[in-house]
Amino acid sequence: MILSSEISFWIALTQIPRWGNVKVNTLLQMIFEKEKIGLEDFFSRSVQEWKEKFGLSEVDCENFTAAKNELPNYSFIAEDLLSQGFEIIPITSSDYSSTLKENLNPLNAPPLLYIKGNKKILQESSLAIVGSRDASEISLQFTDKIARLASKQYKVVVSGFAKGVDKQALDSSLKYKGQSIIVLPQGISTFGSGITKYYSQIIEGDVLVLSTFFPKSPWSVQLAMARNPIIYGLAKEIYVAESGNEGGTWSGVLDGLRKKRNIFVRKPEAIEKNANNILIQKGAIAVDFDGNSIPFQYEEIEQKQLVFAEPKNISKETKYPQQENLFK
């Protein structure tokens, strides 16, 4: 559990200009693991200590001083969010998704999750179904089938609330009485219409709405792109219904492959015009449409992998420092 007086510090920390997740998480590591102090304590330290102990630059210190002055302002925002039933989960919390931390490598994981609904879903086994906004009928049927299997196996379906495959994944998951995480391409407090639409599923605990962005941020292309790694990160398995050779799904899968994720791509029919085959060539695992022969039977998948897995073009693979059990 996060102390209520610490929430504003967390929000302030994620609002420091030009600080990405890695920088924030590295600092958090120093605060929580090396110095073993709290966030409030860190903010109360002198500029000199910030520099010497925590390695902050002059500019960083200026930004942190500004953020410190804005703490009461963030308290107003936090109060408003909490009173509306949103919750704020920091990366140090046991409520935080361990799948997300593992998959993104802790340093890349978003320091804060804003959520509404059943946060226990974050601890369940999960799979993501991704694909184009204007996916073909066959892709949507595939999505439906995977969602049904997920529901049968009590796996949570993660999707991004876009048109096409995302929407199908969510609706099918609910149709088969499964559970779902909606990962928003916007701030969580701008999602009123979606919350109305999935109201009963949210209050029954079958849907969790999640955003990693500042609560009031409106939808934007950048946020939609930045949201993709979160979808992949929250899922233990990733299923691709349909991908073009550019756009969100395409770059998301490539990013996933670089991170050595197992990504299952639907093997398209010969007449289909999409980039599924290319992704398979690049190292994704092919799966066929018919539910019988595919998912969750890892042996079989591994055999297929032998056939298709000739990963190319993964030279850009990022080297992440190996750190286990961060922030625990």
């Binding site: 209520s4 007086s5 009461p72 308290s75 109060e79 909490l82 009173s83």
Partner: peptide, 14 residues
């Protein structure tokens, strides 16, 4: 009620 919630969220040295 909300004012109290706000006060709880304010930094302790405010």
């Amino acid at each position: 009620r909300r004012i109290i919630n706000l006060v709880k969220l304010l930094p302790t040295n405010f």
